[in-house]
Amino acid sequence: MQRRDFFKQLGAVAAVAAISPAISFADEAKKLSGPNDLSYKAAVDAITGGKGAEESSKVNLKVPEIAENGAVVPVTVEVESPMTDSDYVKSIHILATKNANTRCIDVHLTPSNGKAMFATRIKLGGTQDVATVVALSDGTFLTATQNVKVTIGGCG
């Protein structure tokens, strides 16, 4: 498959996933996995279907300024949202802009989550920006970015 075709397909799948997070779980995962070398821009295009995402203070991305260990970097994303059937956060995407594969995780939420928050821990290959792209139920996308300095901390 040509690289461009792959991105196109990826964009399409992401859009479908955003409409119905409950669609066949395994199939969706298989299609999205693909080759693990998406650049940051390609990944954002894939997630937003080329629309891009707007920076917003509604998105609170929490990562350490200095990570004491690149193997375990805490990331928390919280989005201001009522999480009702008509107005909710459909998905939270976490991207490590300079990792070999920028995509870390896509989290598809539903109003049943009650609160738009996701937290995990990621590996960072080096100092870089960590970004989140958030898909809202009205079809728009928000984003936030923060730099993380990765150091080799302490002894051993």
Binding site: E28, N101, R103, C104, I105, H108, T110, R121, K123
Partner: peptide
Amino acid sequence: TTMNVWESL
């Protein structure tokens, strides 16, 4: 909730 996960976790 469903998640697509990659190797960076």
